[in-house]
Structures are given as structure tokens and as C-alpha cells.
């Protein structure tokens, strides 16, 4: 029987899976105030609520509320059971508790391996904002080729001036971008030495929701996600103090978050191509 993805009668919305800690319970509410509970199997707990449909909305406010709730349930689970394996929003296991237990049991080894590797570690986000305008100015003064172009531009006719200007801007953009990449790579190097794992998220924010108060016009030098123990997190904090000592640099350091960036794909082996 083949069903479409949105077609089911009984399902379990899955927030996260964690290593079971016998005697530990979890009392919290989930999306749309659904009561959250744990399903136990094979030394694991799945944190779920019962549901019969996908969570779907075109309202940014609604999505935002769901995401915050999803996150807070995973947080509560993390506090109760230690670092969880957080699932993507709207991950729903088809069927009842029995179906969920049988999935947990099938995947027990993989899940346990991943959870063991993540134990005692959390995800932290680091965003480095720099003063790009100041960097541009410095490069304009320091680069011989730019100074030469600027001089020639002064004396040139209007048409040539236009061309020289283009050359100038393109050279400057290239230098700025080279510098940004070099500084980001250097930071990544230094941070990598302190943490369990690091992912370079690139300089562009991927936030897709229009959330109020986002400062749009900052020049991001680099964004990283790191997986760290408490000790590693402290070391990162010290390193970032050092980075932030530069007056042109601002650092955002957030966490601890569930290790969303460091979770595996489970089951299925190779990702299937288009159907």
C-alpha cells in the first residue's frame, strides 16, 4: 500500500530521541499544547506527542511559535535525559506506539552510537561581524595597485575614468573578499583546535523567516556551528574574548543548543534520487 506523505490516521510527532535514564520522566507540552510523553524501548526514549496530521501553516507567526515550542520540548528532554538527538520539524512516525517502538528497536544500535558520541556535548553558534567599511578603507590605502588606479583615474578623460573606476571597484571587492575569507579560515582553524567538531556555515544568514528585529545590514565575517563539551565551550569563550578585543569585531555566541547541525541521517543508507 502506498500512501502519500500527508495521508495518515495515527502518528507520533517525534521531537528527539535520547538515552533512557530509568526513573526519569518528562512533563511538558508540545506543539499546540499537545501533551508530550516518552516512549521507551531498547534503552532509548523517544519524545513524542500523538498527532493525525502534518503541522502546516503559511503564517510566519505560527511557524515561529511552533519552532520555539519544538525547540523548548527538545530542551526539556535534554535537561531530563542529557544531550538528545533532535529531529527536524514535522518529523512524524506513522502508526502507534508499537510502530515507534519497533523503529527504535530496529535502529537501536545506530541511535545509541550517535547518542554516545554526542553525550555531554552541545551545539553552539558563533557569528562574527566585522567592520567591512573600515577594512575597505585600509585596503584602499595599503594596496599599491589601487593607489595606482586611483592616480590614473584622477588624470583620465571621462570615458577612461569610468573604466578605471570599474577596475578599481572590482579590485577592491576582490581584496575585501580575499581578506574576509582568510580571516574566516584563520578563525575556523583556531576554533577547530578547541572543539569536538566545527561546521562553517558561510557568511550568509540562512534565516528564512521574517523575524522582527533581525539586523539586516551587518557585515558577517563568518558563521560557525561547533559541537563542544562544557570545558571546550569555556575555551571557546576565552578565544572569542580575544577575537572580540578587536574594536572592529562583534561576536555573537549562543547556546547550548541541541546538536541539530551534528545529527546523522538515519536508516535507508544511500539517499534515494528523485522518484
Amino acid at each position: 500500500m502506498s500512501e502519500s506523505p500527508a495521508d495518515f490516521e495515527t502518528g507520533r510527532y517525534l521531537y528527539c530521541v535520547a538515552l533512557d535514564d530509568e526513573g526519569t520522566s518528562l512533563s511538558t507540552t508540545g506543539l499546540d499544547d499537545e501533551p508530550v510523553r516518552v516512549v521507551r524501548e531498547a534503552g532509548l526514549v523517544a519524545v513524542v506527542h500523538d498527532c493525525t496530521s502534518l503541522y502546516d501553516s503559511d503564517s510566519a507567526t505560527q511557524i515561529q511559535r511552533w519552532i520555539l515550542t519544538h525547540q523548548s520540548v527538545v530542551d526539556d528532554a535534554g535537561e531530563a535525559f542529557g544531550t538528545p538527538l533532535p529531529f527536524q520539524f514535522d518529523t512524524i512516525v506513522r502508526g502507534d506506539d508499537e510502530a515507534l517502538r519497533s523503529w527504535l528497536s530496529d535502529e537501536a544500535e545506530t541511535l545509541t552510537d550517535h547518542l554516545d558520541a554526542l553525550a555531554g556535548r552541545w551545539e553552539y553558534r558563533i557569528e562574527i561581524v566585522w567592520d567591512e567599511a573600515a577594512a575597505r578603507e585600509e585596503l584602499e590605502e595599503a594596496d599599491d595597485e589601487l593607489r595606482d588606479l586611483a592616480e590614473r583615474r584622477e588624470e583620465a578623460s571621462e570615458g577612461t575614468q569610468f573604466l578605471l573606476n570599474k577596475q578599481y571597484e572590482s579590485r577592491l571587492d576582490q581584496l575585501v573578499s580575499e581578506q574576509r575569507r582568510a580571516e574566516a579560515a584563520d578563525l575556523a582553524d583556531r576554533l577547530s583546535g578547541e572543539v569536538t567538531d566545527l561546521v562553517d556555515l558561510g557568511e550568509r544568514s540562512t534565516v528564512g523567516l521574517d523575524i522582527g528585529g533581525a539586523d539586516e545590514d551587518v557585515d558577517v565575517l563568518a558563521r560557525f556551528s561547533v559541537l563542544a563539551t562544557d570545558d571546550e565551550q569555556e575555551a571557546v569563550g576565552l578565544l572569542l574574548d580575544d577575537v572580540a578585543a578587536d574594536p572592529g569585531i562583534e561576536v555573537r555566541f549562543t547556546g547550548p543548543w541541541p546538536p541539530y547541525t551534528f545529527t546523522p541521517e538515519l536508516g535507508g543508507g544511500d539517499a534515494p534520487d528523485e522518484v
Partner: peptide, 25 residues
């Protein structure tokens, strides 16, 4: 919201299995 929207929506652990409502792609 700033840091997690993208990962909660697009990352997190992904299950590729028939028991799950949506798979892989």
C-alpha cells in the same frame, strides 16, 4: 529564532524509513 530556524526546519536528524511520513528527498 536567529540561529535555529534553518536547522529545525531543514536539518536535525532525518529519518529515511518507511515508517516516517516523509522520506529523504
Amino acid at each position: 529564532l536567529v540561529d535555529l530556524v534553518d536547522v529545525i526546519l531543514r536539518k536535525g536528524a532525518v529519518i529515511e524509513a518507511d515508517v516516517v511520513i516523509a522520506v529523504a528527498d
